[in-house]
Every structure is written in C-alpha cells, then in structure tokens.
Design a protein around this nucleic acid. Structure first.
Lengths: 253, 253
DNA sequence: TCTGAGTGGTTCATTATTATCACCACCGGT
DNA sequence: ACCGGTGGTGATAATAATGAACCACTCAGA
C-alpha cells in the first residue's frame, strides 16, 4: 500500500506554520510527481480530508478531519486531559508547556499552553520535530523500545546546535539515564536559548504515547527553577498516564 | 487512486456508536477483502491514524487524527465557533442542538450540545445520516448545487418513516422551498417522534459547509415553539456563516 | 475431546492499477 | 515576446494491489 502511504504522508506536511500548499510546492516537499500528488489530493478531497482554496488554488486540511478527532477524543480522551494539566503547569512554573505526540520517527506538538510572560518560548501547533534533539523526543525514544531507537541511530544524527548529542554511545547512555530518572533536561540542544524538561506519557499498553514538557529561556533556567519545573512536569505526566489507563508497576500499590 | 479511496473510506466507518472494529467486521462493513483491509489498516497505522487495541486486536482511530484537527481548527476555526452558538441555542430553546458537516453524499454530526431536559433527543457524535431524510441534510442539499442533488436523486430514496419524502418531484419542490425560506422543518421524516429545524452554514466560498439544527420530541413541537426554535436556529447559523467568512449578498450592505 | 465456525493474519500468482513524462493554458514580470 | 513559474491533463510503460486459499488460534457445543 505504498499509494496509501503517500496519500496520508501528504496530510503530515500541514502544520500551523504551513497551513496551505500549492500543488507544485507540495509535490516538491513530498518528493512525489506533480500528477501523482494531484491524484492523491483528489482522493483525499473526495472525503473532505483536504480542501482546495478556490481563490488561490492552494490545498489545505479539510473539515473531515474534525469528525475523526471528535470520535477519537470520545473513544479515548487525550486533549481534554492534557489541556487542564498544561494550564496547571503554566500556572506553577510561569513557562510555556506543551504536550507532544510520538508519531513514527517524529514528534509533533498537539496541545500548547503559553506562558503569560512576554519573554516566553513559543511552539507551533502540529509542527514536527526530531526525536533526538528535543526533550519530548528523547524521553519517548528512551521508552519506545529497541526497534525505534536502533532504527533512528542507524542514520547519522543531525546537529542543530553545538550541544546536540549526535554520538551514538553517548546517546545510548543518555537514554539509560532517562529510563533511570523518568525525565530529560534539554539544554539548548535543538535551539539556542531554549531549555526544556520533559516526562513521558504512557498509554494503557505501557507504550509511550508522547510527552509533557515545559520550556524556558536559558536565563530563567537556574538550578532552583529546574527543580521546580521538573517536579511539576513529572507529576503532570504521571497524572496524564494514569488518566490514559496506564498502571505503573513501579509505583506504590 | 481507488486504493487511497478505500483507505480513507475505512476511517469513515468509525463513530461514537462504533469506535472499534475487528478485522473481519470492518472488511465486511466496507465490502473489501480481508487481506486488503488489513493492508490498508497497516498503512494507516504507520501514520497513527489507526491504532490496534493489543488486547482485543480490534482497530480504532489513532492519535494522529488529533494533530490534523488541531491544525485545521487553527487554519479555519469551526468547532470553536459552533460550540458557543450551540450552547446558546440549547439555552434559548431548551432542546438538543447540533452542528453537522456535509461530507460527500452523507452528513455527520461533529458538534453536539444536549438539552438539560430528561426527555431529549440524543445524537451520536460522528454518526453519518442520509441527506434526504434529515433537516440538516436537506438544507445542505438545497444549496449544494445541481450536481449533488441530481446525483442523489438518481437513486431510489429509501424511506425511514411514512413521512420520509421519496418522490422526486415533491423532493425538488421541497428544495426550492428551502432556498426561498433559508431553513427546513423536519417532522418525523427520519425517526418517529423526532422533529428538527435546520439552517445552512456557508463557507467563504458560499458553499454549504454543513448545518445547525435543533431537534425536539414531537410533543414539544407546537407552532409557537417552532417559531421560537426557527428564529434561534436561523440566527445561529447566520452568525456561524459570518464567522466562517461568508459574505451574504442578500443581506443589508 | 472432537468438530465447526468464527476469529486475525499471511502468501503469491494473477490482474488491474499507478507513475511518469511530455504536454497545455495561464499568469506576472521582465 | 519571452521566460519561469504556476495548476492541470493524458497515454503508455512500469509497478502495485487483489483475493482465494491457507494457517493458527479460540470459543461453543455435542
């Protein structure tokens, strides 16, 4: 079903940052032929998962996706659980908080609550990030099983800043440390002046669904504040996991 | 792209009423081969639009759909507009209100606010209904263009109650009346003891996106209450259309 | 314990599909 | 007029999907 693969892959390119694509533009970013891309889009349009702006001829996500999300959210609530937890995190820490979903070999933010401070970290909803350079990605990777991490480590890890960990044995040690501590502290490994602390959120099946994280500018990332943020984030993530139906086997009965 | 068609068609079967499908069950309802169905599902699973319950082996919508809906809702808000309007409708009328999306030749509810009364009409989120027997469907059909209505009228229209309009010329007259009045009043044409009033919601491109509707038991559907409900529904739908960026050409400049 | 009917899942030869390239019409600047 | 960029289209070569038959398993009933 490579054809289906390609079609749903197209959906993945749309994000808050880029909500519309021209035909050629989308074909280029996806690496598909223009004619094929159009046929794929037509199939998606037929079911309202994509719609075309009749003025600009650009393609964007269609209203059909709303129905799917509503049904999913009823069958297993996620956003309705994370949003209040994120609000609480922002209140406790004063920093922007977000929940990201592990999706294949990428991670994408689906729920964001921003800090009221004027100097804050801003996230882009729906934007995908690399697993190996974000705090959320690293905690997912640590609990995501050998298959996922070894698949990722097979390729050369790109460095985004001078602090990005790309060396494989160092990376493996890091994942061990995450599994021991249950969290990860990212200090400017993806973007300069952005530090964040993430903790994993597990599903009923004990697989990492995603991660909750709080991000702060380096100037507000003192030892004391790290301690505060860490405590808040790990507690919020644990609460979320519990709400998802995850039963911890290490916790007190 | 019949393959993509089939894959996304599978997504359409999931609703609040049926959130999970076994493999054989889904293949049967879709009319596909079991092997093909599984391959399609695997492609969707790869991108987290479907996930498999590891205990029961049943398939359900995956977390990936949440991301899509969030991005869509940012690029053009819909649910966040309809929900407060529906709340207002319930407050004004005391009856259940819902917003449904026109999707192909079916209509499906994506936003529901239920009446506080114990005897109320209950809707199933994400459930698809026929265009020709529901108030929401009929108003969409009236404004959906000749192509849509003639395609639908080509087939024999199934009757759900003795009041369902299935005769083609009568149906055409009905659509004309809707276009004149801007609404439709359904009296037990889909389900006995359920009456509803719907008004269309238009997009920027003046196409019917869907409809807002209020539904009541026949016992609470007096002439006076119809008048009250009608006024509230048409106003709410007009407000929604305006929020979608629709510019009415019949209204006051 | 045997049987049958139902699961979910897999395989591979047959078959129908899709990819690709070249093309068209159009638009906005040179 | 031209160029480089759109969006969109169609025929054929190359590729992918299909589905009957199959396996392993579970459950219910005799």
């Amino acid at each position: 079903m490579q054809t289906v693969d390609k079609a749903v892959e197209l959906l993945g390119f749309f994000s808050e940052a880029q909500q519309e694509f021209g035909l050629s533009e989308l074909a280029r970013t996806a690496g598909f032929d223009k004619a094929s891309t159009r046929r794929l889009l037509l199939a998606l349009i037929k079911h309202d998962y994509i719609e075309q702006n009749p003025a600009t001829k650009a393609y964007r996500l269609g209203p059909g996706v709303l129905r799917l999300a509503r049904v999913r959210e009823i069958s297993s609530p996620l956003i309705s659980i994370t949003t209040p937890l994120l609000n609480e995190l922002v209140e406790q820490t004063g920093e922007s908080a977000h929940f990201s979903l592990l999706s294949g070999e990428r991670i994408s933010s689906v729920d964001i609550v921003e800090s009221p401070k004027s100097n804050r970290i801003n996230f882009v909803l729906g934007e995908e990030g690399p697993l190996h350079a974000t705090a959320s990605g690293i905690v997912c990777l640590a609990y995501g099983g050998d298959a996922l991490s070894s698949r990722l480590l097979r390729r050369k890890l790109p460095a985004y800043t001078e602090y990005t960990v790309t060396e494989k044995t160092q990376f493996a040690d890091m994942l061990h440390a995450v599994r021991d501590s249950g969290h990860y502290i990212n200090r400017e490994q993806y973007e300069y002046d952005v530090c964040s602390i993430a903790a994993p959120v597990f599903s009923q099946t004990a697989q990492p669904l995603g991660a909750m994280a709080v991000a702060a500018p380096t100037s507000r990332f003192s030892k004391d504040r790290q301690k505060l943020i860490l405590a808040a984030v790990t507690q919020a993530a644990a609460t979320a996991s519990r709400a998802m139906g995850f039963k911890s086997h290490t916790g007190n009965s």
